[in-house]
Design a protein around this nucleic acid. Structure first.
Lengths: 204, 204, 204, 204
DNA sequence: GATGAATGAGGGTTCATTCAT
DNA sequence: TATGAATGAACCCTCATTCAT
């Protein structure tokens, strides 16, 4: 009789094994046989639960994206006031479980493949759009409309740049440095708002 | 005597073909046979002028890095005053010949491979360090010492984030948007400097 | 469950195919694709059961060495008395299944490669040492100590020379000729022993 | 104007380079480019003076064979009496310039290729026949007719076996050991002759 | 005479995928 | 449900050989 309910278990194992394999040896070395060996199953199992390797890779990237989303949503739910909402988004993207040398390496590998894989590119697009939407929503109450998009892009771009550098630079980027940089940027933007508001008041 | 002086010509052709192949099909599809076909030569030629594929890839990344450096140096030579020097670095990194969907895709592909390739990683490291050094040098006269490193990191990280987004997002990032974002960041930083200077003066 | 227990079968097939390929076309023409075709399998199978071609070649030489050892051991087990033991070793090395044009050609091919392959050289070394050890042991009761090593070397060298000539000379070397030559050498040595013994007795 | 008389010089250089290349890295690694590099010329030169690589290899084996022949002939010319003639042949085959680890390695490489190269096989055949002919001629005066062929085969086979072992065994075979073995064999044969002659005389 | 650039077939090897068990 | 044997295309690379110069 067949073991029931194996599907979610096996998919989970294989996705975790895929992330681990990419982290350790890079995208091109993450072969089906290495992934399945790491998951403790035979190569055939991969094609039993995923149509092909591309499907497994897509599922893996989706899984990474979901983890990121959860980190952000969780912090957003605890945030009070617009300022804390922006900080929740920033801190969610720099969550200790994700923003590690290993974690960003896997992301970077997917980024490198995305431009020539429509399926991966689509997911990346969603992630970036989601970040942008969240930031716009959180910043609207505290940033002037004409600077809204620019500020959201600024924070989003900084976060992406930090991820990239975390994967590329030899020593990585410390979580503290990353936080300081983004929060300082937010501070600069809000200070400029206040300065402008003061100037407006003086004129009035 | 055979055709003389073919070496620089062929190396140039092969490097260009490598960039084109990566742009079009991604890193993993940039095979020796595709690269050589694109260069209009047989596969053997690749190994006549490069020890192996890794050497060709390294030479290609070095070439990209050199182009970037030239764009920056050229603008630095024309710059007058510290503010223009910072802008020269920013604009050099966003030079029209480099900051295109295609160009940026090749870079991203190399970034994705770097964590697993010490040789590529070394070059990336040099590029990032060079950018940081240039920025520090240009910002020193106009930014307070305690904010110097932070500001340089901010601009550098923004530039890296812009490159990443240019490759990843569907529509890319327009050159104008990129310039606006970075120059605005510089403006914010300098405005904060002035604000602090004013506050200091008022106190005195 | 897949077909089980294929490993010994496939390894046997591939080793046999390797011997056949070397016999027919020589060492340099014994390519993986020719070997696998001869075994009736695809090229991938070779690397499924052997890490690489060198491993297959080493296994093949080991197999040849084992066959030789079996031929000798079998005859040694049936031998009665020292004289018959020496003859068992000689005849084992000239066993009809091994001492054929074809068999000897494969050996010679391996000999030709051994000086450049430490792995093959090691096996050759063992084979030669084993022959020497066997001969020493068998000759000890019937040859004076001071002539023991020389006689063993003589028989061993003759056997090696016969193998070489069997592979090289156009008509090969007949089994009968080979036997006559080695047995005659043994006879000469033993006659010399007897002669010396007689002389000693006369003196006494 | 073309340099005249280059042909013998270049052929000599290339043959020497071929022997050196085979000695150092084995038959399969003796490529045209390595041989020409060692000779200090370009790859094209090889095909200028030899129709193809096989021709160069054949010329090289012929050259080795000629060297061997010269060593033997020279000693034969100095020999006095049949016994010395036999020893001249033995010592010529063990000449210090030939019977070295390096020298026999090149020979062995050719032996390994000969069975599947009719051209090389033909030369090997000549060498063996020549040795046999020389031995028969030298032994005729001192060995009984019915043992003549056997004795010549014995010495020839011993010499071939010694060459083989010199190339194969780790420590090689010392010149002294080789001489002792062959001369002892000759001694045994001649002693047997005398013994038989004595026996015949006693009967008479 | 000599060069070395160029070719392209063929080498060993890896891989995603299929399938009988 | 799971295995791992098997496939064969495609990979990078090497090589003898040719040929314009």
């Amino acid at each position: 009789m067949p073991k029931l309910g194996m599907e979610p278990i096996r998919r989970r194992q294989l996705i975790d094994a895929t992330i681990a394999a990419i982290e350790e040896n890079g995208f091109s070395e993450a072969t089906v046989s290495r992934i399945s060996a790491r998951a403790g199953v035979s190569t055939g199992v991969v094609h039993h639960y995923f149509r092909n390797k591309d499907d497994l890779l897509e599922a893996t990237l989706r899984d990474l994206a979901n983890t990121l989303r959860r980190e952000v949503v969780e912090r957003l739910n605890r945030a009070r006031g617009p300022r804390e909402r922006v900080e929740a988004i920033i801190d969610g993207n720099l969550a200790p479980g994700l923003f590690t040398r290993a974690g960003v390496t896997a992301w970077l590998a997917f980024w490198g493949e995305a431009p020539n894989s429509p399926r991966l590119a689509r997911i990346q697009d969603i992630i970036i759009r989601r970040l942008h939407g969240n930031l716009i929503h959180a910043l609207r109450p505290i940033v002037a409309p004409e600077r809204l998009a620019l500020t959201a892009d600024g924070i989003g771009t900084l976060l992406d740049g930090l991820w990239l550098r975390a994967a590329l630079t030899r020593g990585g980027v410390t979580l503290d440095d990353a936080r300081r940089l983004t929060h300082d940027y937010l501070e600069l933007c809000l200070a400029a708002e206040r300065g402008k508001a003061n100037a407006d008041r003086e004129i009035a």
